[in-house]
Computed example of a mutant assay.
Amino acid sequence: MTDPAATAENLQNLASLKVERAGHVAEVTLLGPSKGNAMGPDFWRELPLVFRSLDDDPDVRAIVLTGSGAHFSYGLDLPAMLPGWSEYLAGDAQAGPRTKFLAEIRRLQESVGAVAATRKPVIAAVSGWCIGGGVDVIAAADIRLASADAKFSVREVKVAIVADLGSLQRLAGIIGEGHLRELAFTGRDIDAARAEKIGLVNDVYPDQDAVLAAARELANEIAANPPLVVQGVKDVLSVSTEQRVEAGLRYVSAWNAAFLPSKDLGEAVQAFMERRAPQFRGE
């Protein structure tokens, strides 16, 4: 049996996440430290540690996932992550660097996958922006709730990247192929009303306090049920979905390891740094 003290120790001194408990409900809050809770190296290292620890804790029966401040997450922290990827993204990168990049993509996929893999139901409470990697993470949750000011974007196409951390695999079963293709091809932003209409979120609440209160109430309602039965329900619901997701993640990781380095990606990064519109040439 897991030692609760050891589990608690794993959740101390986190840089990007905060974990709190209330009864049988754990609350995980994104902290940044980058603006808008952007997801840098600390986040990708700590996310699986947190969710695996909570999965091992028999006292935790449901999990609320939310963001600190006004926004859930701006997504991948490009300035923090790109320097470590320079070897992989060079236009002349050979098999060695590309193989390392494949492993890096799969490491990030496993971080998000830890949210989906936990046996405890996960409820995402989203306010403000939820972009790119933020959508990957909430797609791995079981239930999504939003405040009226929430905005969502599968934005990777805007920076010359094929989304590879789960949105393209998990959202089809949540919002349907047509809506997913529209969001992924355009990279456009949608508001909470549209997100509710297409089924990305279950319900919309007036503000951040209201959505967080609703998520906590729902988590406590779930936690009041027989925990092993709830976990069994999640396991049964997830079995076919996660098999399909795993196959899709393996394919996209290989695709990006082979094709992600491009002149368009370099242009996207340069335009991001210079705060201008990119000019893509299909190169």
Rank of each mutant, 00 (worst) to 15 (best):
G199Q: 00
D149N: 11
E283G: 03
L265F: 11
L145E: 01
L165N: 00
N225V: 15
P278F: 08
P33A: 12
V233L: 13
M81Q: 11
A219M: 00
I105P: 00
E221T: 13
Q231H: 10
P261R: 00
T118Y: 04
V25Q: 08
V64A: 03
R98Q: 08
K197Q: 15
S68K: 12
I222L: 02
R170K: 11
F272H: 14
P41E: 08
E110A: 03
F101W: 01
G36A: 10
D189I: 15
A224Q: 01
D164R: 10
P48I: 02
R155A: 15
N202T: 15
D142V: 08
R52Q: 12
N225C: 15
V269F: 10
S147G: 12
N256Y: 02
V135N: 06
G132N: 14
T186I: 06
E196A: 12
V159Q: 06
G166K: 09
D42G: 00
V28Y: 13
A277P: 07
A184F: 02
E9Q: 07
F72Q: 06
R216L: 05
E27L: 07
G32A: 01
G173F: 05
G128Q: 13
A80W: 01
L183H: 12
Q243S: 12
A150C: 06
G32R: 04
S147V: 11
S238Y: 04
V115H: 11
K18A: 14
S53I: 01
R194A: 11
V135T: 01
A258E: 04
L180S: 04
A258L: 12
A90C: 02
R281H: 14
A5N: 03
G187H: 01
V230H: 05
L76N: 05
A219W: 04
F272W: 13
S262V: 09
